[in-house]
Computed example of a mutant assay.
Amino acid sequence: MTDIRLYMFQTGHLNLKVHNIKMNEGNGADYRIPVPFFLLTHPKGHTLIDGGIAVEAARDPAKYWGPVSEVFKIEMDESEGCIEQIEKLGIKPEDIRFALFSHLHLDHTGSVGRIPTATHIVQRSEFEYAKNPDWYAAGAYIRDDIDRSDINWHFLEGVEDDFYDVYGDGTLTTVFTPGHAPGHMSVMLNLPNTGPLLLTIDAAYTTDHWEERSLPGFVSSAVDAVRSVQKLRALADKTEAMVVTGHDPDEWSKLKKAPDFYS
C-alpha cells in the first residue's frame, strides 16, 4: 500500500461524565465518547497518529490504569487495539515508519512500544511532563505505557518546531497546540483528493470547544487551550480544511471508518 490514505479507527469508548469533557457542565450526567486513532499511509512509510487505549487496559482496567479507571470507564475489546486493527488492513507493525503522539494521556498511548522499529515523535515538553506531572494530572499518564525500552524517540521543541513537516512534502504537519496538555499537538494533513484535513485531537474535544462555547474538562492551562483553538480556527479558515474534533460522539459518527478511508 503506497498511495496516500487516511484511515480513522477507534479503540472502543470511554464512559464518563459531561463535566469531564465540558468544564463545569452537565450536572453529573453521563457521557460516552469514542477514542480515535489514525493511520496515514504514505510512499515513504506509514504514520500511526496516536494509539488509543492500550490492550492491557482493556484486559484489566483497574490493574493497568489504577483508580482513574473508576472515572474513565473503558468499553473496549482487546481486538480493538490499534495494532490488531491495522493488521486487518494487511499492514504490519514493521510497515509503520513514524508513531506520532499528539500528547501522552492514557487514551492516546496504546501504541507506544508496540511498533519497535518506528520513530516515536512527541513534544519534549510533553514527554518530560509525563514523567513528572503535577498532582492533579498524574492519573492521566500511565507510566507503563511510556516507560518502554528500546524506543526511538524524536523530540520536537514547541514553537521552534511549530508546523513540523514530517515527510517534507506537506502531507503531514504538526501544529503546536498546548493547553489540554503542556506539549499537545494537532495535525494538519493534505490529502490528494480530500484536500486539507485538520485533526484537532484534544485541542478541541468537541464542536462546543471548537465553537468556543465550552472549555475542555481537563486542561493544563485554560488560557493556552483557548488560544490554541483560536490558532486552529484561523488555520482552518485559511486552508478551508475539513475539521475533525477529538472525541465528539455525534461528529465522529458521521466520518468514514476503516476499512473506508480519505484519500
Rank of each mutant, 00 (worst) to 15 (best):
D150G: 10
R59K: 15
L156P: 00
D208Q: 12
F163V: 14
D224A: 14
D77K: 13
H19Q: 11
T117M: 05
P61K: 07
M242W: 10
D208I: 02
Y64N: 01
V159I: 14
H184T: 03
D208N: 11
I151V: 15
T117H: 05
S221W: 03
T119C: 04
K63H: 10
E251F: 00
L232A: 02
S149V: 14
Y7C: 09
D165Q: 09
K238P: 00
K231L: 04
R148W: 05
H103T: 08
D169C: 13
D95R: 11
H46Q: 04
E94W: 12
D165A: 07
L40P: 01
T117S: 09
W135M: 10
A203M: 11
M185V: 15
H209M: 02
P259W: 12
F38T: 06
H108R: 11
L215S: 10
A99L: 12
G110A: 06
I91S: 05
V175H: 01
V229K: 00
Y205V: 02
E70D: 09
I151N: 09
T206C: 03
K257T: 14
D237P: 00
A181L: 13
A54W: 06
M1Q: 06
S221R: 02
A140C: 10
I96E: 04
I142N: 05
A118T: 07
H103R: 12
G246F: 01
H103L: 07
G110M: 06
E70N: 09
F9V: 06
K238R: 14
I121P: 01
F98Q: 02
N15R: 13
D248L: 00
R148A: 09
S253P: 04
L172G: 01
G110K: 03
R5P: 04
E128V: 12
V166A: 02
N152Y: 10
